[in-house]
């Protein structure tokens, strides 16, 4: 059993713009209405880098930035206060991989050096480290549809083993054609959780992560949110986010694909 105190959340998806603004929707007090993502994300990146980088990097950094926003005054002056990070994404930056695979179909196979630089799964982690100056460890992982759960488990293991706060960042975006025909991700979704193994004054929730992978996964009441949950690996966090928004106590079972779950108890 791994105990985590949730300090802050970052959230970005169509119609879910930031944790505070999404709370009422996730609590079932307002209907979910999809809407395009804001035009400008990840304002912590310098303007020239923000122009150069991809939608994937911006989405991941946007939620990381939101989760760390309460610490902003500190992390802009004291870089040692930033936590290590765990980044979870099923497929990473498929926009970049698509461009590389397209280039490889041309006679000269001229892979763009910039695209190749950005093709690694840990590109958002690299940008985050550069933007914040944080030199601590960062782990980028994938577990297909179970990526969020794998990320939360890694974050819990890291927090308890190394007695450190951890920033978990999970994100996935729809793939471009033609890959989209073989992997359906219905909408972009990113979430960040700032987790602390030690008690804190103001917490959003207390998570007790259980070992074991068998059980029945939770579904959502709202058909629209359930479609999002099932249609994006990062959105498989939604049963947890909805329970936090409702300040509910009790068991949560997150779907990890393959009829397996990540189980936890949550307390407001």
């Amino acid at each position: 059993m791994s105990v985590l105190h949730l300090e802050a959340i970052g959230l970005m998806a169509p119609g879910l713009v930031g944790w505070e603004r999404s709370r009422a929707v996730l609590a079932g007090e307002q209907p979910y209405q999809t809407a395009p993502l804001p035009a400008t994300l990840a304002m912590l990146l310098p303007a020239n880098e923000r122009r150069r980088t991809t939608a994937t990097v911006k989405l991941a950094l946007q939620v990381a930035q939101e989760a760390m926003d309460g610490m902003k005054a500190q992390w802009q002056t004291r870089r040692d206060c930033m936590p290590p990070t765990v980044l979870a994404s099923s497929g990473g930056d498929s926009e970049v991989l698509n461009k590389i695979c397209m280039a490889l179909t041309e006679p000269d196979r001229a892979v763009s050096p910039t695209q190749f630089h950005h093709s690694v799964h840990n590109t958002p982690a690299g940008y985050w480290a550069i933007a914040t100056g944080c030199t601590l460890s960062s782990l980028s992982l994938s577990a297909y549809d179970g990526s969020f759960a794998a990320g939360l488990r890694e974050a819990a293991a890291l927090a308890s083993t190394e007695a450190t706060r951890v920033l978990l960042i999970a994100y996935d975006l729809p793939l471009p054609f033609p890959l989209a025909e073989r992997r359906t991700i219905v909408a972009p979704f990113a979430v960040a959780l700032l987790l602390n193994p030690a008690p804190i004054n103001e917490r959003l929730a207390l998570l007790r992560i259980k070992p074991g992978c068998s059980g029945t996964a939770d579904r959502l009441e709202s058909a629209e949110l359930e479609q999002l949950r099932a249609g994006n690996p990062a959105a498989r966090s939604l049963p947890l986010l909805c329970a936090i928004a409702r300040r509910r106590a009790g068991p949560i079972a997150l779907d990890t694909g393959d009829d397996a779950i990540l189980g936890m108890e949550i307390t407001p």
Partner: peptide, 11 residues
Amino acid sequence: LNGVALAISTA
């Protein structure tokens, strides 16, 4: 095996 499984991808 059917426990924890993950891919780590940091170049």
